[in-house]
Design a protein around this nucleic acid. Structure first.
Length: 370
DNA sequence: TATATTTGACCCGA
DNA sequence: TCGGGTCAAATATA
């Protein structure tokens, strides 16, 4: 827990950028909701718009938190924080939205996807080694039209056992063979503990949220893709992040090197939260992943991960370091692409009462965005 | 022997 | 019909 490797730092950056981007999308979504509701009914929209106004305030706070975290990370580690042009303007390009939507619609599995680019030192390389802390199993490789290098297909090792639907595709860039583009699809629903987990962060620490998720997975048809983002990975990252914040000046290899090659090598993650056709574009289809239908079985209204909610709120209430380092919460939102869920968007948050940056700010979930 | 990888065939959406 | 994604038998590895 003492040393934090460059890889973790890059990962932190990636996750922060990702969370920030998703928060932006939430902001956009709220704006859209607000404007549409006002247009629909100027007389009855007061409560709605005010709620959205509160939502916007919340989103701004979240964005601010990400900004701070990124700034801290940048200044403390020297990591260049860059975002892809597509994310800089804060809104998805409309033409690309259409494109992405078309793209997504012809895929068999409509899952949230995002892309990360990794650069490795020449000669190293092995895409299979581009480990992200999860256990992947290669199930295919295929040449892609127009691409010099074949694309590798990986799925979560725990797919069979736990029904985890997370997959990733690894494609070496034509232009720069040292760059790998990894497209993740779907979030982990398995309870595997990331390799990123430091020894001190035992699986038990993450069992709670996972167990509830496991039950969701088991009771849920696999093709429903409960986007219960990987709380384990999430929490693991948080654990790692804590290390980061405590040891920003260390650049040694991680105590739990996730790669098979020298972790001190030039392993550059030029991540950007892509696109995902389904995730970033369609906020109209946004619905928090924890609002899995499975979680709604309690009859009266929605119940969301009672176990993890405490974790979530803890993150919000807790130390700012930790707070800033919870971008993976955004994963929870990267969600379901099913339009069926669209109306659930943001109407309920799983946090219960959550305190944000200021102790005085109380976030009451159920009506906040409604 | 169990598990992971390879690879050709098959499926599906556009 | 084509291309991307997945399946599953064969093979490799620990």
């Amino acid at each position: 827990m003492e040393n934090i490797g460059e890889w973790e730092q890059k990962n932190l950056k990636n996750e922060l950028l990702r969370g920030k981007e998703l928060a932006r999308q939430l902001q956009i979504y709220l704006n859209v909701r607000q404007s549409s509701s006002m247009a629909a009914s100027s007389s009855s929209s007061s409560s709605s718009s005010s709620s959205n106004g509160g939502g916007e305030l919340l989103v701004k706070k979240i964005l601010s938190s990400y900004e701070k975290a990124l700034s801290l990370l940048s200044s403390s580690t020297g990591i260049q924080i860059s975002e892809s042009p597509s994310t800089l303007n804060g809104s998805p390009r409309s033409e690309d939205s259409d494109h992405d939507q078309r793209n997504a619609s012809r895929k068999r599995n409509i899952l949230p996807t995002w892309t990360q680019k990794f650069q490795v030192s020449p000669g190293m390389a092995l895409e299979g080694s581009l480990d992200d802390g999860f256990c992947w199993r290669k199930y295919g490789q295929k040449g892609i039209l127009g691409a010099k290098h074949p694309r590798g297909y990986y799925r979560c090792t725990h797919r069979n056992v736990q029904g985890c639907l997370a997959t990733k595709q690894v494609q070496r860039c034509d232009d720069d063979p040292t760059v790998f583009e990894i497209t993740y699809r779907g979030n982990h629903t398995c309870s595997q503990v990331s390799n990123l987990t430091p020894p001190s962060a035992t699986p038990d620490q993450f069992q709670q949220p996972n167990s509830s998720i496991d039950s969701l997975v088991q009771s849920h048809p696999p093709d429903q893709n409960q986007q219960t983002s990987p709380p384990d990975a999430l929490l693991n990252s948080w654990a790692s992040l804590k290390v980061i914040t405590e040891n920003l000046d260390t650049t040694h290899e991680p105590t739990f090197p996730p790669f098979s090659y020298d972790p001190t090598s030039n392993y550059e993650a030029a991540n950007h939260v892509k696109s995902a056709s389904t995730v970033d574009v369609n906020f109209a289809e946004f619905s928090p992943s924890f609002i899995s239908p499975t979680t709604t079985t309690s009859g009266s209204g929605l119940r969301y991960f009672p176990a993890s909610s405490s974790v979530l709120s803890e993150g919000f209430v807790g130390h700012q370091n930790l707070q800033a380092n919870k971008p993976e919460l955004s994963e929870i939102f990267s969600s379901p692409t099913s339009a069926v869920n669209s109306q659930t968007l943001g109407l309920e948050f799983p946090f219960g009462e959550v305190e944000l940056m200021e102790p005085s700010f109380t976030f009451h979930n159920t009506n906040f965005f409604s």
